[in-house]
């Protein structure tokens, strides 16, 4: 316990502010959920309970195909970036090597760079591959996945690095002193120790991939686009109850992911939920 609880009017005012913040956070989400069950063609008007919009969601082929692209891109890009990002974190936390500083800086850039810039970069890159090396790239599943990996590696490596930095390096030496080879020391000591970091990084990569609109929009091709990009296109044409239902499903997926990870953390003895 650090700072003492304020008293009287100050405390009340602070409490009121907290209440307003939570209202601000949750009112829109809850209303959205509510209206997704509303039997009215006009979004935001209550017309009795219905599940029709969810049935539409299940039967709409375009939504289903976008959903499947989203899920596949998210899983594959997460797998790749978790492996690459973890290796990068290990290299930077545990080794000195030539080009280390450049690599470190390069690894930070995708975190800082605005989505729009990154989107532009990827678009020009994939387009100019043809001009430069005569490689014709069809925009679609693979270009989306490649782009998502390009930003996810950095996020994974930052989270895993934080975990590695907090880990006592003597543990690895102790393992080697106890007859473990370098690989065994990693397998039995380092890896289990940084597992929460890797899981956190994976969750972040998954969320970022499922969240991304701008970059994907630039590198997606006709016929293969992700759910957020598809929904974004729909929204720009106007709100519909179908979008409500799709949104609630997406929301449910993110919240489930977070809650699962929080539970897993609780089970492990729990560190802070931020990283």
């Amino acid at each position: 316990m650090s700072v003492a609880k304020p008293r009287g009017a100050t405390n009340t005012a602070l409490g009121l502010n907290a209440f307003v913040v939570y209202l601000f956070f949750y009112a829109p989400i809850l209303l959205l959920v509510l209206f997704s069950f509303s039997d009215d063609n006009i979004v935001g008007r209550w017309g009795g309970f219905t599940l029709d919009w969810y049935r539409d969601f299940g039967e709409n082929d375009e939504v289903q195909s976008a959903l499947s692209v989203s899920v596949r891109v998210a899983i594959i890009s997460t797998l790749i970036s978790v492996v690459l990002g973890t290796m990068a974190a290990l290299a930077l936390e545990r080794f000195r090597f030539r080009g280390e500083r450049v690599f470190d800086a390069l690894l930070y850039l995708p975190v800082i760079i605005p989505d729009v810039t990154m989107a532009v970069m990827m678009l020009i890159f994939f387009t100019s591959l043809d001009d430069l090396i005569g490689l014709q790239v069809t925009k679609g599943f693979s270009t989306i996945t490649l782009s998502h990996v390009a930003f996810s590696i950095s996020f994974v490596s930052i989270v895993v690095r934080a975990r590695l930095a907090g880990m006592n390096q003597t543990l690895e030496e102790a393992a080697q002193d106890l007859y473990a080879t370098r690989w065994q020391a990693f397998r039995h000591v380092t890896f289990p120790q940084i597992m929460p970091g890797i899981a956190g990084g994976a969750l972040l990569a998954l969320t970022l991939s499922l969240d991304d609109v701008v970059i994907t929009q630039f590198v997606a091709g006709p016929g293969s686009t992700t759910l957020p990009v598809y929904v974004f296109g729909l929204i720009r044409r106007g709100v519909t109850p179908l979008i409500n239902a799709v949104s609630v499903v997406m929301l449910g997926a993110s919240i489930t992911l977070v809650l699962l990870s929080l539970l897993a953390q609780r089970a492990r003895g729990g560190s802070d939920p931020v990283a």
Binding site: G44, D211, M250, A253, I255
Partner: peptide, 14 residues
Amino acid sequence: WSNFLVRNYAWRVL
């Protein structure tokens, strides 16, 4: 952690 697009959409509805 919730989907960013969806959270913006919620305000569009609201």
